[in-house]
Structures are given as structure tokens and as C-alpha cells.
């Protein structure tokens, strides 16, 4: 594996990721995927390093995935869960982070129900010159970078299992449908998929996909002048699905019904729910993604979700561990000693 260039101390958002950054993540994740297929799945890469899971918002899947990734890299893992915390006793978010800093944390993986918390903690850690890297594992309805990157690995792997590459996404049509406005997964995916050259089409009811939603994602400050980002917004599902190579649907929280956002689950399913019948207008070999957990029968039918010919949901989970190993490795080592790790 070639020496990689990596200049992100933190991974807070994908808004400033370059195609080179994505390629680095994918290549690194593919290497770790090979490690995970061996009998001995553990490498000494982060031996002696302390990885902290600061999950202010409850999570099982993402936290487990990060925990396993860190353990496969031989890191020591600390878990912080809100139920047993003192956040209700007047401790600030920075106090919590500083407690783990004092225990010697090298990497902090942070999830919070409110937007911007990983950014605030990262800014404070930088101000203190700690050198600690922060990985955003989901902040409010803002971003969830590791989910989008594992989605990217899943897509690249499906397109060419032998040699996954972001170049394979050029010209592919990817639909993201459902509750976009509340989705941090959708926001991170809008940045990554468009940057890799895919045509991204979003669709959802107007209350969950406001007009001009994609406008803010059309350009990143780091884009070279010539890089066109293809983002299209639709109010009907069929326009987004038409000829799509991949469809990503999102979890619909049931409380949206009581917030005057939707009339009923039935109408939502009729308008935006995915089924074998609805996806017929997609490309013949269309694949379906979902960040899980799934509301069966709401955003997707059980038949479609469980169809091994169509659904990539299981592969997304598998990609998650390799991708998160790659991210922890890149933050933990700056991508310096790649050659040693996978041997």
C-alpha cells in the first residue's frame, strides 16, 4: 500500500473532502477489508492508543461498529453512555471531553442529538493543543460522515468487487429518497456522492425536502473551478427513481406525524415507500441502501428489504467496520505507516 497523504486531524463533515480524500478512505478500507477476511482479524496499528466513544445520544449499532473497528486495530476502547453520566448534574460537554482527555484519549468518537457538538469539542481540543482527533459519529440533523463513507465503500465494492474505486461512480444515478431534512446521513452522502461524480437525485414530500435544499451542497469551498456537482431535487419519487442505479431510502421517524409534517404513514408509504413495483422504473440491476434501523412497511416493504438481489443493507453493515477502521487509522496515524499495518 502506498504512503497516503491525509491532512484531516478531525472528521467532522464531508463538506471539504476532496476526491483524493475519498479515494484514500476507500483504498484504506479495502485493505482493512482484506484483514477482516483473514483468520486473525486483528492488527497492531493502534496498539497503546485510547479510542473513546462519547455517545451523548444513545446508539447501539454505530457504537458497536466503532468499538469493533477500534478493537481490531488493537486500541483500548472507552465507552461513555449518557444513562450513567453526570450531564444532568451541571457538567458541560467540554467537561466530559476533558475527563477522557485526562485519561489519555487519542481519538474521540462523538455522537450528539444536537448539531455542532463534535465541532465545539474539536475546537476546544485544538485550542488546548492536545492533538486529539475527533470523529463525528452523527450530530443532530447535520452530518454522519462515517455512514456516508461506508455507503461509498459499499457502492464501489458492488460496482467492482475485485478493484473498488470511486471512479466507478462517475455517471451513475443515485436516488436518495424520504425524510431528507432530518437526515444527517443524507447530508453527508450529498457531499460524498456528488464529489465522486455521481448524479444524485433527491426526492421527498415538500415538508421533508424543502425547495432549494440541494442548493447548499452544489459547491464546496475546496472544489476546483471545473468540478461540476450533479444534484437534482424532485417532488415525485418516480422522477428520482427513473433509471437509477442505486436507491438510498431513509428512516422515517414516527413522530413526524404529530409535527404537522405528514398526514399519515399510509399516505407516506403510498407516495414515497419503496417496493418491488416502485423500483421497476430504476435500472434493471438497481440496488437498495438504507442506513438502518428500518421501519419495515413504511419507507420500504419487507419483501424488497429482504431481497438479496436488491438490498445492500447487510453489506453496508459489513463495510462499516472496515471503513471505521480506515478512519481511525487515518486519524490515529495521519496515514503515515500504511505499509506496516496490513502485513
Amino acid at each position: 500500500m502506498a504512503e497516503t497523504r491525509w491532512n484531516h486531524r478531525h472528521i467532522l463533515s464531508l463538506s471539504r473532502f476532496t476526491p483524493t480524500d475519498y479515494a484514500t478512505v476507500i483504498n484504506t478500507a479495502v485493505s482493512f477489508g482484506e484483514v477482516l477476511s483473514r483468520r486473525n482479524k486483528k492488527v497492531p496499528t493502534l496498539q497503546g492508543k485510547v479510542v473513546t466513544n462519547l455517545f451523548f445520544e444513545p446508539s447501539t449499532r454505530t457504537r458497536s461498529s466503532f468499538e469493533l473497528a477500534a478493537k481490531r486495530l488493537s486500541a483500548d476502547v472507552l465507552n461513555f453512555a449518557p444513562g450513567s453520566s453526570s450531564l444532568t448534574k451541571g457538567e458541560t460537554i467540554l467537561d466530559t471531553a476533558k475527563t477522557y482527555l485526562a485519561m489519555g484519549a487519542d481519538i474521540m468518537i462523538i455522537r450528539h442529538a444536537a448539531t455542532g457538538v463534535p465541532h465545539a469539542i474539536a475546537a476546544e481540543l485544538d485550542r488546548l493543543n492536545t492533538g486529539v482527533g475527533v470523529l463525528n459519529a452523527g450530530d443532530g440533523q447535520h452530518e454522519h460522515p462515517s455512514q456516508a463513507l461506508l455507503d461509498l465503500l459499499t457502492l464501489c465494492t458492488v460496482l467492482n468487487p475485485e478493484k473498488p474505486s470511486i471512479d466507478l461512480l462517475k455517471g451513475k444515478k443515485i436516488a436518495i429518497v424520504g425524510d431528507i431534512i432530518h437526515s444527517r446521513v443524507a447530508r453527508s452522502n450529498l457531499w460524498s456522492l456528488a464529489a465522486c461524480g455521481a448524479a444524485v437525485h433527491v426526492a421527498g414530500p415538500p415538508t421533508l425536502l424543502p425547495a432549494d435544499f440541494v442548493k447548499g451542497f452544489q459547491r464546496s469551498p475546496i472544489d476546483p473551478p471545473g468540478l461540476p456537482r450533479q444534484l437534482v431535487q424532485h417532488t415525485s419519487l418516480d422522477a428520482a427513481l427513473d433509471g437509477a442505479d442505486f436507491v438510498m431510502t431513509l428512516r422515517l421517524q414516527r413522530e413526524r406525524m404529530t409535527q404537522h409534517l405528514l398526514p399519515s404513514l399510509r399516505e407516506y408509504h403510498r407516495q414515497f415507500g419503496l417496493s418491488h413495483q416502485r423500483v421497476q422504473i430504476c435500472a434493471p440491476d438497481v440496488k437498495i441502501l438504507h442506513p438502518a434501523p428500518v421501519n419495515r412497511g413504511v419507507e420500504i416493504t419487507s419483501e424488497l428489504m429482504d431481497d438479496p438481489e436488491r438490498s445492500l443493507i447487510g453489506q453496508q453493515v459489513t463495510s462499516g467496520v472496515a471503513t471505521r477502521m480506515a478512519l481511525l487509522y487515518l486519524i490515529g496515524t495521519g496515514g503515515q505507516s500504511a505499509a506496516d499495518i496490513v502485513q
Binding site: S15, T115, D139, H142, R184, D212, K215, G216
Partner: peptide, 11 residues
Amino acid sequence: DGSLALMGGLP
């Protein structure tokens, strides 16, 4: 409200 708030995940 606007494209900046939407992009940045702020209600």
C-alpha cells in the same frame, strides 16, 4: 431558514 441552515443541519 434558507439553504445555509438546511446544509448546516440547523432547524
